[in-house]
Simulated scan of single mutants.
Amino acid sequence: MLNRVVLVGRLTKDPDLRYTPNGIAVANFTIAVNRPFSNNQGNQDADFINCVVWRRAAENLANFMKKGSQVGVDGRLQSRSFDNQEGKRVFVTEVVADSVQFLENKGSGSSNDSNNQSSGGQSNSFADEGEPIDITDDDLPF
């Protein structure tokens, strides 16, 4: 059996970074992925895909990417359900990311390096190369 998802899209909002009670980082994010064809009006529609990533990859995503940033996601599709506050069963389908590749510099492709500095005056390690990073197996949630 195979459950593999590979997506390239843009973040629709800043990633939502949180921590479990045990201190494990988890980031929820949504990416807009253009469809490979146009609709009847000649416009290209997009699908909005909910994703989740864990541990250091979650922290890296939240620290270096923001709304509009282009990312590549490699992971698996997962379905789950839970009872909401009203007691109603809610079904969720999302991509659990094994890795997230940063396809742009911080600043959504800005060529001005002064915009590519992280807060606190620290240098952004992506400012000069602009190349994707590899996430190691240590960053995976399983």
Rank of each mutant, 00 (worst) to 15 (best):
Lys67Tyr: 10
Asn50Ser: 12
Ile49Trp: 10
Pro36Ala: 10
Asn43Glu: 15
Ser38Lys: 08
Arg76Phe: 09
Glu59Gly: 14
Thr93Asp: 13
Gly75Asn: 11
Thr93Asn: 13
Val92Gln: 09
Arg55Ser: 08
Asp83Arg: 05
Asn112Cys: 00
Asn60Leu: 14
Ser99Thr: 14
Gln44Ile: 08
Gly68Pro: 12
Arg55Cys: 08
Lys106Met: 11
Phe91Met: 08
Ser110Pro: 00
Arg35Met: 02
Ser38Asp: 15
Gly42Thr: 03
Phe102Tyr: 09
Ile49Leu: 08
Val100Ile: 15
Gly72Leu: 08
Phe91His: 14
Ser81Cys: 05
Gln70Ile: 10
Val92His: 02
Arg56Ala: 08
Ser111Ile: 01
Ser110Arg: 00
Asp98Tyr: 03
Val92Met: 11
Phe37Cys: 10
Ser110Tyr: 02
Leu77Asp: 01
Lys66Ile: 08
Gly42Asn: 04
Lys88Arg: 12
Arg89His: 03
Val92Pro: 04
Ala46Asn: 04
Gly72Phe: 05
Gln70Arg: 15
Ser81Tyr: 12
Asp47Ala: 11
Cys51Ala: 05
Ser69Gln: 05
Pro36Thr: 13
Val100Asn: 05
Met65His: 05
Gly75Lys: 11
Ser69Asp: 07
Arg80Thr: 15
Phe37Pro: 01
Asn84Leu: 03
Glu104Gly: 02
Ala62Gly: 09
Ala46Trp: 07
Val53Ser: 06
Lys88Leu: 10
Ser38Val: 14
Cys51Asn: 10
Arg55Ala: 09
Ala97Lys: 03
Gln41Ala: 13
Gln44Pro: 02
Phe37Ser: 06
Leu61Met: 10
Ala58Ile: 07
Ser110Cys: 06
Asn50Pro: 13
Asp98Met: 03
Asn60Cys: 10
Asn50Gly: 04
Ser110Gly: 09
Ala57Cys: 11
Arg56Lys: 15
Asp47Phe: 09
Leu103Ala: 05
Gln101Tyr: 07
Gln101Phe: 06
Ala58Tyr: 12
Lys106Phe: 07
Ala58Phe: 11
